[in-house]
Amino acid sequence: MDRDLSAARDLAATLAAAAGRLQLERRDTLRVGAPKAHANDVVSDVDIASERLIVDGLTEAWPGDAVQAEEGHGRPGTTGWTWVVDPLDGTRNYISRTGPWSVCIALYQGDEPRAAVVHEPVAGETFSAVAGGGALLNGTPLEVPDGPPLTSSLIGVSFQPNVATKTRAGRVIDALLPQVGDIRRLPAALNLAYQAAGRLDGGLALDTNLWDIAAGALIAREAGVILGGREAEFTTELTIGAAPSLWPALAELIRTADA
């Protein structure tokens, strides 16, 4: 079944912006629920309301599509198309007011990502992409610049905050810090989107879920970021990204540290 990918991207951007406005409006009155997988895996009533807003909008437009959504509003489909939704990537930042978060929506045809949106509500920035059509920031094309030498690079770091992954991340960061210019810890989607915009020279994400990285990965790749993992393809276990000139050195460093 054919799909107008530009129209799909534009609707996803509209829904992501609407969810972002809801998040800003309700930040002072949010209620935090019980942790999910572990003590640091928090969720708020705003996460749930945001996801419902997005899924309702997608379902109205394409009722036969499947939805895979973090907070439980997913459903099977009949068209071969699947929407992957993280309504609020960076909930801990959102709740604690200590950093950025984003709204993430990706569209897959089978196993292939075809369109993506990552919206940062505070800055009012919408990163987006259509497969084969490049990446945009608020409508302006993105193209990754050549990276600096490893020793002056700025690297984004994302990881699940469970005990096992924090221990793993500690080993990788211990190897990274003496070799790079500096690091920044960010939610996974913005890590990838900021690489697409050239704000970060590279990055890594450990033990994510598909909804954490699906949208950001397509945007990064369409902007020219090189992506991989332990092997040529990235996975939710390990995602490495870098500007082309930085990729060989950064990938080797991370793979060696995470062996």
Rank of each mutant, 00 (worst) to 15 (best):
S102D: 05
S102E: 05
C104A: 05
C104V: 02
I105L: 08
L107G: 12
Q109M: 06
P113C: 03
R114I: 05
A115P: 01
G124Q: 06
S128T: 13
V130W: 12
A131R: 11
A131D: 15
G133E: 13
G134M: 06
L136F: 13
L136Q: 13
N138D: 15
N138R: 10
G139E: 06
G139W: 11
G139K: 02
G139I: 10
T140W: 03
V144A: 07
P145S: 10
D146H: 08
D146R: 08
P148S: 05
P148K: 14
L150K: 10
L150Q: 09
L150A: 07
L150C: 00
L154T: 05
V157H: 03
V157W: 04
Q160P: 00
Q160N: 10
P161E: 06
K166G: 08
R171E: 00
I173P: 07
Q179K: 15
Q179W: 03
V180E: 12
R184D: 00
R184I: 01
R184M: 11
L186G: 11
A189H: 12
L190R: 13
A197M: 04
A197R: 15
L200P: 12
A205L: 09
L206R: 02
N209R: 15
D212T: 10
I213K: 05
A215M: 07
G216L: 09
A220W: 04
A223P: 00
A223G: 03
G224W: 12
G228E: 12
